[in-house]
Amino acid sequence: MTEQIALIDSCKLRLHEQYEIRRVDEVFQSLQNEKILKNPIIVVKMEFGLNYLILDGVHRFLSLTRLGYTQIPCQILEQKDFILQSWSHVVEYGDWVESLSDKVEKYNGAPESESEKIRIWVGNNHDHREIWATKFPPSSIHELVTEWNEITSLYINRYPLTRVEHPFVSMAGENKIIVQYPSLQFDEIIQLVREGCVLPPGVTRFIVHHKFENVNIRLSELDRSQFLEESSLQLK
């Protein structure tokens, strides 16, 4: 079967998470220099309207629109095509840690209990590590998003961070903090988007069973001027 990537109007694409300014600048510069989109934006059609939810590639999408493109190459998935998990953040130690004091407390519960809490590993130069957690489980999905945004706002776009799949306590060294976010259900994300809410950047992790990679779409193939209906782009 011939593989195709759909071209979707940018106005039909919805974000479920915020973005990192530094990463948008980096991707924008790369696209501007290379004039090649290596990987399409990964989306799933939403249950209401004609919109699509971006699962992966928000920085590529924003960079393309910044360059003036309205037709965005997308790989369209169904919900059965992916698994939703979460990323953990390994962040440099800084003054932002002091601002956590009113949001967290030393964690004494079992990891499998109160799984909706954010857990934070803190290390010091004596190789001793403590686990902190948010003080109270959120009472609603909106309270959870507010809590996540408050914590990530302390370090996103301010300190270098690395997203990791499976954090190890050993990663929490003298100058590193691990922030582990719990996973959400996909219908919770849809609910948030429907209500105009977005999650912090780099928290959700979508594992796609079959992802188009290294397709190398030339930007010259994308029309900047015409606002076309959904069409398709043949892979080379």
Rank of each mutant, 00 (worst) to 15 (best):
M1H: 11
M1P: 09
T2I: 13
E3V: 10
D9L: 05
C11G: 06
L13Q: 04
L13H: 02
Y19Q: 12
E20A: 10
E20P: 01
R23C: 01
V24E: 12
D25H: 11
V27T: 11
F28K: 08
E34K: 14
E34L: 12
L37K: 00
K38D: 10
N39F: 02
P40K: 03
I42T: 13
I42N: 02
K45D: 00
Y52K: 01
Y52V: 01
V58E: 14
H59C: 06
R60M: 02
L64M: 14
L64E: 07
L67W: 08
Y69I: 05
Q71S: 15
C74A: 09
I76T: 12
I76F: 04
E78R: 11
Q79K: 15
D81C: 10
I83T: 15
I83L: 15
W87I: 06
S88I: 11
Y93Q: 12
Y93M: 13
Y93K: 14
G94T: 09
D95V: 12
S99M: 07
V104S: 00
Y107D: 15
G109N: 10
A110T: 12
P111N: 09
E112D: 09
E114I: 03
E114F: 06
E114N: 13
S115R: 09
E116S: 15
K117V: 04
K117H: 02
W121M: 04
V122C: 13
G123H: 06
N125Y: 10
D127V: 09
E130A: 12
A133Y: 00
A133N: 03
T134C: 00
F136V: 14
S139Q: 08
E147Q: 15
N149V: 00
E150V: 03
E150N: 06
E150L: 07
I151D: 00
S153D: 15
S153Y: 02
S153I: 04
Y155N: 05
I156W: 04
N157R: 06
Y159W: 12
V164P: 03
E165D: 14
H166R: 13
P167I: 11
P167N: 10
V169A: 12
A172L: 05
I177E: 03
I177W: 05
I178E: 01
I178Q: 01
I178M: 03
P182G: 04
P182K: 04
S183V: 10
L184T: 01
L184G: 02
L184P: 00
I189K: 05
E195L: 09
V198F: 10
L199Y: 02
P201G: 06
T204L: 14
F206Q: 04
H210A: 11
K211W: 08
N214Y: 08
N214P: 01
V215S: 04
N216T: 03
L219P: 03
L219V: 04
S220W: 01
S225I: 13
Q226G: 07
F227G: 04
L228R: 03
E230L: 08
S231G: 11
Q234K: 14
L235A: 02
